[in-house]
Amino acid sequence: MQTKVKKGLIVIDSERCKGCNYCGLTCPKGCIEISSDFNSSGYFPAKFSNPANCIGCAMCAVVCPEIAIEVFVED
């Protein structure tokens, strides 16, 4: 029996993100990193950098203090 791996999609609101990197540190698959481009508030926001590895666990969204991350899971 083969187990199907869930695929996730992370949407980060770069204008809400303050670049704390809690999401990047929490992600078990290393799917998030800090952008080299700043947002309109002068912060370097997180970006979804490795979508192939995302499993949709939503740990990034849980730890985000700015509620800037939405996670979608493909069945």
Rank of each mutant, 00 (worst) to 15 (best):
F44K: 09
S41N: 13
F44W: 08
R16H: 02
A58H: 15
F38T: 12
S40I: 08
Y22R: 01
E15C: 00
C20Q: 07
V71R: 06
L9R: 15
S14F: 01
V73F: 02
V11T: 07
L25Y: 14
C17D: 01
N39G: 10
G19K: 02
S35T: 04
P51N: 09
C23H: 01
L9F: 07
I32H: 11
V11C: 04
F72W: 09
F44H: 09
Y43K: 03
K7T: 13
V62E: 14
K7W: 01
I67D: 14
K4S: 15
K47S: 01
V11I: 13
C54K: 05
K18V: 05
C57P: 10
P51A: 10
V73A: 00
R16F: 03
D37A: 11
A61C: 09
K6N: 13
V71T: 14
E66N: 14
S40E: 03
M59K: 11
F48G: 12
V63N: 09
N21P: 00
K18Q: 00
S49C: 14
F38I: 07
N53T: 11
F72S: 10
G24A: 11
C64S: 13
I10R: 06
K6C: 08
I32Q: 05
Y22C: 01
C27K: 11
G8S: 07
V62S: 12
L9T: 14
G19P: 03
P28I: 10
N53Q: 14
V63A: 06
G42C: 01
D13C: 03
V71I: 12
E15N: 08
S40Q: 12
N53D: 13
I12V: 06
E15I: 08
E74A: 13
C57G: 06
L25M: 13
C17V: 02
S40N: 14
Y22N: 05
F48Q: 02
P28H: 05
A61I: 03
A68R: 08
A52R: 13
A68L: 10
A68K: 06
F72T: 04
I12C: 03
A58Y: 12
I12D: 06
F38H: 15
D37S: 11
K47E: 10
G19V: 06
K47C: 03
C17K: 05
A68G: 07
T26F: 03
G30Q: 05
L25Q: 04
I67R: 14
K6S: 08
A46I: 08
C57A: 11
K29C: 06
Q2F: 15
E66S: 11
G24L: 01
T26K: 11
V63M: 10
S35M: 02
F44S: 07
